[in-house]
Write a protein that binds this DNA or RNA. Structure first.
Lengths: 150, 150
DNA sequence: ATACAATAGTTGTATATACAATTATATCTC
DNA sequence: GAGATATAATTGTATATACAACTATTGTAT
């Protein structure tokens, strides 16, 4: 098992807490890169994929931009430009809301839904990287991460 | 305790494994942003801070770029430009290696060491966010993350 | 109704990242 | 020792991110 010490070639951390901070950042980056590489074959970035999943969750009800933003993993990504890229690919639809013309209604298209289905079908491969943990361990991990954020 | 479900406003995940993936990415991003905000007062980015710590670990022995890169949390950051930024700030020193002129010897300066000391002193505040977990829980978290990466 | 504030999204711009191509130097092979 | 290969780092370039400033629309108070 590759400890975080060996991963970043540091023999000793100041504390178990500091080690955990590095470990979370490192593991997050590692997982992100795995995911990004996997999704590249489908020509979407992790955040684009994330937005598509969010929209599928609401489908067929459209969502406004602010609602998408607050559900995103990385809130700093610029939702306007992200959605625009998905629109160009034909994966989402944008319509100005009739009742409130400031607002934009965004929904996933049929093409977007089909893409998600395809991704889901072949995502076993990368999800299997998580299979190093038992279900009980994964539950424990989720508990600890939630508790960590306070 | 804010569960990952409430953080990304998704009631239900396909599996505990998928939830863990989102949870790690989300917590990593959350921790990164906390850290970035904290370090901004010292005018360094998280990766710049990371490189300074790496160099302090080797001090007074200089390191070559490739050795720094393989110790970095995010291996994709461009170490050349990162180090150059630190050099401009006077926090590191660059010297072409006499024995091997392809190679650049990089070391942390006195100013860099002083900055790290200052940061260490005031980093209790942000490290305290990890204090939501007991030491035993933090150890368990480190164990699970290491095991996850396999 | 007019002015002020709040909301929803967009755009500008500086900086950072991803990844491939390139330069420079060293080593190896014949 | 000339040419091929490997190593170390840098540079080019397209894309992404951070964050503030801006536009447009709606709501509120007087």
């Amino acid at each position: 098992m590759p400890t975080i010490e060996s991963e970043v070639k540091q023999e000793k951390f100041q504390s178990e807490f500091q080690k955990a901070a590095v470990n979370i950042l490192f593991t997050g980056s590692w997982l992100y890169n795995l995911n990004a590489t996997f999704l590249k074959t489908f020509d979407v970035t992790p955040e684009q994929f994330n937005v598509l999943r969010i929209l599928r969750g609401s489908h067929p009800k459209p969502m406004m931009l602010a609602d998408i933003t607050c559900r995103m993993i990385d809130k700093n990504s610029n939702a306007t430009r992200l959605v625009e890229k998905l629109r160009v690919k034909g994966l989402v639809k944008r319509e100005i809301c009739k009742n409130n013309r400031r607002q934009v209604d965004i929904s996933i298209t049929e093409k977007g839904l089909i893409l998600l289905t395809k991704i889901d079908r072949s995502s076993d491969s990368w999800q299997s990287t998580l299979k190093n943990l038992t279900k009980a361990e994964v539950q424990q991990l989720n508990f600890l991460l939630d508790k960590l954020r306070g």
